Simulated assay, not measured.
Amino acid sequence: MAHTYLPLEQYKRKWIFNHKDLPVSEADKALIKPLDQKSSMEVWNKWISNRSSRSEQFAKGDWAAKGDAWSETDHWQSAWDSEDSSMPEILQLHFDWLEEAPVYFCYEKYQVIETTWGVFARNWKCFLFFDDGPLLISPKKKQAAIFHQSGQYQVGSRG
């Protein structure tokens, strides 16, 4: 599936990667690739849900709505608020992905960013300026995470 990307400068949420307190290197910015609406929809329909357009709408039949999809819950907010740039430990341990593994950070059906695991891991705080239920997945792996506005996240596996 060939994707169409928006230049980061044209992405409506580009400010999250240009925040003065959380600088993103130019090398990493080059690997942060927002998908256009059609490509975002294709990724969402294939890997997340072909029924729901946002995580709060997940329903029966969506893998993310299954009780056994999520194995552990932890807090991301305190790590996000700290001076330390490290991801929460449970998040780090759950994903044994290679630095260059492709990942999708899926805000909702029409808002998906493609990047690599390494770029996400270094800049995870920037991605979470919007925390209304985004999911982190990789097309080649089963591990997944969902981030909630409550400051919690869950890790698990896609069905």
Rank of each mutant, 00 (worst) to 15 (best):
A2R: 12
H3E: 12
T4S: 13
E9I: 04
E9L: 05
Y11T: 03
R13Q: 13
R13D: 13
N18P: 00
N18K: 13
H19T: 10
H19C: 08
P23I: 04
P23K: 11
S25N: 07
S25A: 11
D28L: 05
D28P: 10
K29I: 03
K29L: 09
A30H: 08
Q37A: 15
K38G: 03
S39N: 10
V43L: 08
W44M: 03
W44C: 01
K46R: 15
K46C: 09
W47I: 05
I48T: 05
S49Y: 11
S49I: 08
R51C: 04
S52M: 06
S52K: 04
S55I: 03
S55W: 04
E56S: 13
E56G: 06
Q57Y: 14
A64L: 10
K66H: 11
W70E: 04
S71V: 13
E72H: 07
D74S: 13
D74F: 12
D74G: 01
W76V: 00
W76P: 00
S78K: 11
W80V: 00
S85E: 08
S85V: 09
S85D: 09
P88A: 07
I90L: 15
Q92D: 08
L93T: 11
H94I: 06
H94P: 05
F95A: 05
D96Y: 00
D96C: 04
W97Y: 14
E100D: 12
C106Y: 04
C106V: 15
Y107V: 07
Y110W: 08
Q111Y: 10
V112R: 06
T116H: 08
W117C: 04
A121Q: 14
A121V: 07
R122W: 00
W124F: 03
K125V: 01
K125T: 02
K125W: 06
F129N: 05
F130L: 12
F130Y: 11
F130R: 12
D131G: 06
D131A: 15
D132E: 12
D132V: 05
G133P: 04
G133L: 05
L135P: 00
I137P: 01
K140V: 08
K141T: 01
K142Q: 12
A144K: 03
A145P: 08
I146C: 11
Q149N: 10
Q149S: 14
Q149A: 14
S150A: 14
Q152R: 11
S157D: 14
R158C: 15
